[in-house]
Amino acid sequence: MASNKHTIVALVADRPGVLNRMASLFRRRGFNIDSIAVGHSETPHLSRMTIVAEGSDSQVEQIRKQVEKIIDVIRVQDISGLDIVSRELALIKVKASAETRSEIMQIVDIFRAKIVDVSTDSVMVEATGDEEKLSSLYNLLKPFGIKEMTRTGRIAMARGGQVARREEAAE
């Protein structure tokens, strides 16, 4: 069976331990989570969790059904097959001298990123985009020397009228 990356979106109650229960379920099933991002949703007291994991369609469907059974999960959906918008955020601290600063700034401009912090020996770049864009930016900045980097992991939403939310809240 072919294995590919799946984007799973879950609406969950804002309660202690929910993230741990979700991660434990993936671990017990032998799935590596490529990224997981959690934040507030449009509904008070509910968070939106976006999980990227690799597996076959049938394996991910089994996981989705297991996640659905977790008491604090309101709704879960594999949106991989849908037309989605996905983004990541990256902060990259790059070594920068007076000689290299302008070249770094040109690269940052090309990627529509921005410099959010400057010191005598480095600049911090903030960039948003898909995984490939951020990897390309990283690869171009790497020769200058990466001091630190962090990425949020993918967040995603289906385009158009499809939403992952409580059924009774649907319009």
Rank of each mutant, 00 (worst) to 15 (best):
I51W: 02
V116N: 13
N139G: 00
E68L: 13
I155N: 06
A90F: 09
Q77W: 10
I92D: 03
E68I: 09
T152H: 02
F111P: 04
R154D: 03
P16E: 04
E103R: 14
I63F: 07
V52F: 06
I79D: 00
F144S: 01
I71G: 06
M1H: 12
H40S: 14
E171Q: 12
T120W: 10
G145P: 05
R48P: 06
S35E: 09
Q66I: 00
V73C: 05
K95S: 13
L141G: 07
R28Q: 13
E42D: 15
S122M: 07
R48I: 09
G161T: 11
I107V: 07
A170M: 14
A156Q: 03
M157L: 15
R48A: 07
V18Q: 00
N20S: 10
Y138F: 10
E88C: 06
A53L: 07
Q59S: 07
Y138T: 05
Q66E: 14
K147W: 01
S86Q: 13
G160V: 05
S97Y: 02
E148Y: 03
L25N: 09
Q59E: 08
S58T: 02
T120C: 04
A158C: 01
G30W: 06
I84C: 03
G30H: 09
A2F: 04
F31Q: 04
L141F: 02
E103Y: 13
L137V: 05
L46A: 01
R75C: 04
R48E: 03
N32T: 11
R15M: 11
S80N: 02
R112K: 14
Q106H: 10
R27Y: 15
I63K: 03
M105Y: 14
K93P: 01
R27W: 15
K133E: 01
L140G: 03
K114D: 14
I92M: 04
E54A: 08
D121Q: 14
R87G: 11
A164I: 15
P16K: 09
L137I: 06
G55H: 02
T150S: 09
A170T: 14
V94C: 08
K142M: 11
S58Y: 00
T152V: 10
H6E: 02
D130H: 14
E42V: 14
S86E: 15
T43V: 12
V12R: 04
S102K: 15
A127R: 11
M149Y: 08
